[in-house]
Design a binder for these strands. Structure first.
Lengths: 226, 226
DNA sequence: TCTGGTTTGTGATATCTCTCACAAGCTCGT
DNA sequence: ACGAGCTTGTGAGAGATATCACAAACCAGA
């Protein structure tokens, strides 16, 4: 089963398994883990865990489970986390500032190397130990520092232009926090994180269950002859 | 086709269409829009747009397209955005603070009504015009203010407990920013926003294309007899 | 009223994803 | 050495999602 392409859905879950395994290794010092236990920690079912891991190769032992350290290494390697990825943040507003000082990034080898904005009053100031530079310097800095990942935290109107500048600077991976769709060439990956969209999705399900409750209520009144 | 349940994948795209329609209405004052144009603005293909919209009912006109205002209204209604949703943020660190002052929320009828933390030094201070209250007051405040949406922005170790307190307070929709899996009863919706996971997914695809490029390079050297 | 150009709505089909169920394979105690 | 008890790896089928392709319906102009 090795060397088959890894499905997108599986790729999206590997980081979740990775985190669970880190908890096991660092926290409890557990040596092996069953698909059942890993599934519970990751909030999925055991068959899915086994199938996901089978795409990486046969790293488990029947009757025993998976070796935590070995599996950790394999997932780390598969996700390309054995090396550091230099990243840059564009747009140093509320969100950009929070991202710049967010610990979670550096933890897994993502290093914020540069910050960019267009606001003159902001250029030159330090945020989280890094100077804010002008967007016009993006290409030069990106090439110089081998920036691999661009993080867009600008207002929506600026997102597309920033994306194009990142692409022009050779960046192939973009994480977009701006509430806007950005179009890029097919060899560039974009992932979007959109708080407002997530809330709207929650709203849909919340409203639906309330609607059902209301309907049930109405139905009960009808049924009881009122 | 009406009254069939709307697929999850479609629900997740409705907010994207909504945003595009708002651009059309407010920005350019355009009256109708074709699935083709909407698809381009949303970054998907036209057949998908039509199928998605068909779940809401037949709101288009053949040969013409969709009435922008009418479609706006229908999607807004379907997403439950005709009323305001009171929300609360738990965990007022870097991220929580940024969220508390984030404009994007209030825009679509999500009102941040309360902030919670456990750090004594933080309790009583104001963030974005709201006082930070102690987590122990959560239930009382949540019931009193009819909080519908809970936003978790705590460190990962606290996430599960906070989720349980939210559930206990009657909250049925949770947006989880903490890098941790939270388990909730089936009648509660959780959506997670995990910056670190998104970066790791980007890392996978970036690393893969680099690996392919390296292999191709090696192959070329072999082929040329070096 | 008819014709040509346009765009929707949707069956049919392809692709992706999840879940089940069980043989194969491992460990351990006897 | 062997059987009991687990746990993996995976084929098969179910289910969800995406895409295709085209008939049906509309508008505008003659």
């Amino acid at each position: 089963m090795r060397s088959r392409p890894i499905p997108e859905a599986t790729v999206a879950r590997l980081p979740v398994y990775l985190r669970a395994l880190l908890d096991l290794a660092e926290g409890r010092g557990q040596l092996t883990v069953s698909s059942e236990e890993l599934a519970h920690m990751a909030g999925v079912n055991a068959a899915k865990v086994r199938k996901d891991l089978s795409y990486l190769g046969s790293y488990g032992t029947r009757g025993v489970g998976y070796d935590v350290e070995y599996l950790l290494y394999q997932i780390t390697r598969e996700l390309g986390l054995t090396k550091d990825w230099p990243a840059a943040i564009v747009g140093i507003g509320n969100l950009g500032r929070a991202l710049a000082s967010y610990r979670g990034f550096t933890e897994r080898g993502f290093r914020i190397m540069a910050l960019f904005d267009v606001e003159d009053s902001m250029i030159g100031t330090e945020v989280g130990g890094l100077p804010v530079r002008h967007l016009d310097d993006l290409k030069e800095v990106a090439v110089d520092q081998s920036i691999a990942i661009g993080i867009i935290a600008t207002p929506p109107a600026a997102a597309q232009e920033v994306a194009e500048r990142l692409v022009d600077a050779g960046v192939k991976s973009i994480l977009n926090f701006a509430p806007a769709v950005v179009n890029v060439p097919p060899d560039v990956s974009v992932r979007k994180v959109d708080l407002s969209i997530e809330l709207q999705i929650l709203s849909f399900y919340q409203q639906r269950t309330q609607a059902i409750a209301t309907a049930r209520e109405a139905n009960r009144r009808l049924g009881s002859g009122i």
